[in-house]
Amino acid sequence: MTLRQLLHSLAVTCLLLSPFAATAENGVSATELRVGMVNAQSGPAADLGLGMHSGVLGYFARINAAGGVHGRKLVLINMDDGYEPERTAEQTRLLVKTHKIFALLGYVGTPTSRAALPIAQQAQMLYLFPLTGAEFLRTPAKPEVFNIRASYIEEAERLVQHATEDLGLQRIAILMQDDSFGEAVKSGLSGALHKRGLQIDAQTRIQRNSLEVDKAIETLRSTQPQAVFFVGTHRQLAAAIKKAKAVGLKTRFITVSFIGTEEFIREAGSDANGVYISQVVPSPHDRSLKLVQNYQADVDPQNISHASLEGYIGAMVFVQALRNAGKAPTRERFIDALEHTDSDLGGFKVRFSRTDHQGSEAVFLTRVENGQAITVDKMRD
């Protein structure tokens, strides 16, 4: 046998002995399937990242305890980006190139998704169920991108509808994070107001991951809006409300689901009372739903939140599509399975098609009262 033939024989032997030899698909072996997640496990958006992580792990643990999917255990590789896009990109490259995962699941944020998506697309990697309502992930539909949650356009529409119809408000200002997240929600707010012959009354900005809100609140005090549409993280909103009260700015605060409801309530205390928050999943405490009953059984009680329920739902949809993709899952089979998903998960419906990769349009209105986010039908003074 020549040296060249010997090397070829050794290479073939190594390939056959490799646990991933049964398939050419990254992240899939005979015994496990690896999924990657990069999101905020530290910093001001950590409650969202930790929530998504705990929700996905909770459902994966349920499935693994029952033998996995087609005999494969689900493995989640998680990395922390601190809600900083540069770190998101770095960690995503590491997941794709080094860990050879099957899909990216459960990212958190608009600027972070903007950093990760080009890397995923270049690698032809699935980018699944991020916690963001940004439109660039939805329109037009992208083959490798699937969203479950309603968009920021839909959240803003619901909030503006209630603010104008229930309370008769016309002067709504925006206090926004100065990045693509802020711009995404601002676009939804502007569109919802325009439909009603209105426009944003005033706008001011804060920096991502900064708690410096004094200048922004002083700017809003000069205009005295009837409501402030806030776009940022929970500590920023708590600081803004505290400052507004200190300087005599009497206004209502409303915000979208990204705020991290439970952490905001803990951070703001009694200052949180009266704040309206749109949600894109049901209450994680609504045990009338079979979904929530299972979720509460699988997730640590200390991690019960809207964010962890969203992660749990994402994991459910992922597993369902993986089962339907067959015993030898490929990217193409998995995409086909997702595009044929039409499921009631126990009180929450998810449906995709070839032309629509957003699974839900559900938006729930909540009002903070005495330390809880209560689901309500309308806004009140």
Rank of each mutant, 00 (worst) to 15 (best):
K349V: 13
Q296Y: 14
K349C: 08
R287V: 12
V281K: 00
F318P: 04
E332H: 01
T341R: 01
G274M: 14
V275C: 10
M316H: 08
H340W: 10
G260W: 11
D336H: 07
P329S: 07
R351Y: 11
D342M: 01
Q279E: 15
D344V: 13
Q279N: 06
L309A: 04
S305M: 09
S305H: 03
V281L: 06
A337I: 12
R323E: 15
F334Q: 04
A337P: 09
D298V: 10
R333H: 10
E267R: 00
G311V: 07
E339G: 01
L345Y: 04
V299I: 05
P282A: 00
Y295M: 03
L338D: 05
V280C: 03
N294P: 10
N294D: 15
N294M: 15
S283H: 03
V350P: 02
T261S: 11
D298Q: 08
R333T: 12
Q279S: 05
G346F: 00
S305L: 07
A325N: 03
I304Q: 12
D286Q: 09
F348C: 06
S343V: 06
L291I: 15
V280A: 01
L291Y: 11
F318N: 02
G326R: 05
D344I: 12
A307K: 02
P301A: 09
S283K: 02
V350F: 07
E310W: 14
Y276C: 11
S343P: 01
V292E: 03
Q293Y: 12
V292I: 06
Y295L: 10
Q320V: 11
G347D: 03
K290F: 10
G311Q: 11
K327H: 14
E310F: 12
D298P: 03
D300V: 09
T330G: 02
G274L: 10
G326H: 08
R351K: 11
I277A: 04
K327R: 12
Q279H: 07
L322R: 02
A328Q: 15
S283D: 06
V281C: 01
A337G: 01
G274R: 06
S283L: 06
Y295N: 01
V350H: 03
G311P: 09
H306A: 05
F334L: 09
D300Y: 08
T341C: 05
K349W: 15
I265F: 11
Y312A: 02
S278H: 04
P284R: 04
E262S: 07
V299E: 06
K290P: 10
V280P: 05
G346L: 01
V319F: 13
P301Q: 07
V281G: 00
G311R: 02
E332L: 09
I313L: 12
I313M: 14
H340E: 12
Q320L: 15
H340G: 05
R331G: 12
S288M: 09
G269E: 06
L338K: 00
G269P: 03
S270Y: 09
G269Y: 09
G269D: 06
E310T: 10
I304E: 13
Y312M: 13
N294S: 13
I265N: 07
